[in-house]
């Protein structure tokens, strides 16, 4: 059966290549699939859909982009589908890079970071150390003083599992600053937010409320990115601390490795142009998420660097050998 399959694929490939043999000029010939490794309705999905709506305008031949949800396995299902897809530019993925930087170290996936070609990053999700608005900790210095005096007392949640990318970023923060905090895992953003508001845990490392007068007070952003608007202009960022710490949670577009360079350029330019589309800009503004662009190379370098750091931390914690 495999043989027939291959024959079939070859035939289709031939047919696809027929109309114009100068492929680069004619890409894309048919709709492009954008895989989202989450279910419908989440931030990544909503983002993908708002891009997909306008991308047609910026692609040659005004080709459509169709969002395909492949949820499950902590994004590994969707990324496995992407890694196995033909590197012809017709299958792309939109995903936070965080899981790639973590999951490959467990050796249970059929892909590694090298299986993907990062095309560009469109977003850097801001994350801060937060406490309740009614908390006694007015600012980072006060909080730091308390944590130094009470090592291991302060409990926080990252709305994720032990060994998740946000938890590992906090481990790195603790390692650099010498502070001792206790991570309490929660299943998703909703549950962890409820735990903070209900006082089950003392703080969180997550995106703060995207508006003023919220119930959560950010003490310090470990990411260089902050939510849009002036609400958090006075909150310090990690790179300005005495011991600088920088975390980053970019979300970007990936293709399977081996995609022709000219197609990467076409796709990159279309997505970059879509980032400047008024409809998409309005979406960034209403969702409060910062429009942080990174070209493919910068994005890839960041993934390599964070991935290496995660590997070291996971080994230290005894989660991998």
């Amino acid at each position: 059966m495999k043989k027939i399959n291959v024959l079939f694929a070859a035939l289709i490939a031939l047919l696809a290549a027929m109309p114009g043999l100068t492929t680069a000029d004619n890409f894309p010939q048919r709709p492009i699939e954008l895989i989202v490794p989450f279910g419908a309705g989440g931030t990544t999905d909503v983002f993908a859909r708002s891009f997909a709506r306008v991308l047609g305008k910026y692609l040659p031949h005004e080709q459509r982009v169709v969002v395909v949800n492949k949820p499950g396995g902590a994004t590994t299902i969707g990324m496995s589908v992407l890694a196995a897809a033909k590197p012809d530019g017709y299958t792309l993925g939109l995903s936070p890079s965080g899981t790639i930087e973590v999951m490959q170290h467990y050796g249970r996936t059929r892909w590694t970071a090298d299986s993907f070609e990062p095309i560009l990053a469109v977003l850097d999700i801001p994350a801060s150390i937060n406490v309740l608005d009614s908390s006694e900790f007015e600012n980072y210095a006060q909080w730091k003083q308390y944590v130094e005096a009470n090592p291991g007392k302060f409990t926080f949640t990252t709305s994720g599992a032990t060994g998740g990318s946000a938890h590992l970023a906090m481990e790195q923060f603790m390692e650099k600053t010498g502070l001792k905090l206790r991570h309490i895992p929660f299943e998703g953003h909703a549950a962890s937010q409820a735990a903070v508001l209900g006082g089950q845990v003392m703080g969180s490392f997550a995106m703060p409320n995207l508006h003023q007068g919220g119930e959560i007070r950010p003490l310090v952003f470990l990411t260089d990115a902050k939510p849009l608007g002036d609400d958090y202009a006075d909150t310090p960022v990690g790179s300005s601390l005495d011991t600088p710490v920088t975390a980053s949670f970019p979300m970007g577009v990936f293709a399977p490795k081996g995609i022709p360079a000219d197609r990467v350029a076409i796709l990159h330019d279309a997505f970059k142009a879509a980032m400047d589309d008024p409809d998409v800009i309005r979406f960034y503004e209403t969702s409060g998420l910062p429009r942080v662009y990174q070209d493919g190379e910068t994005f890839a370098a960041g993934i390599r660097q964070r991935s290496a750091a995660n590997k070291r931390l996971l080994k230290q914690m005894g989660l991998i050998k």
């Binding site: 309705g41 909503v46 409320n209 508006h211």
Partner: peptide
Amino acid sequence: PFLALGIPGSASIAIIAGAFIIHGITPGPQ
């Protein structure tokens, strides 16, 4: 809990939260 605090009480409400975001309304106590 979703309308009062922005915390979805079930998986379905979490998807409906997507509709709020689409229309530029950030779920939350505000």
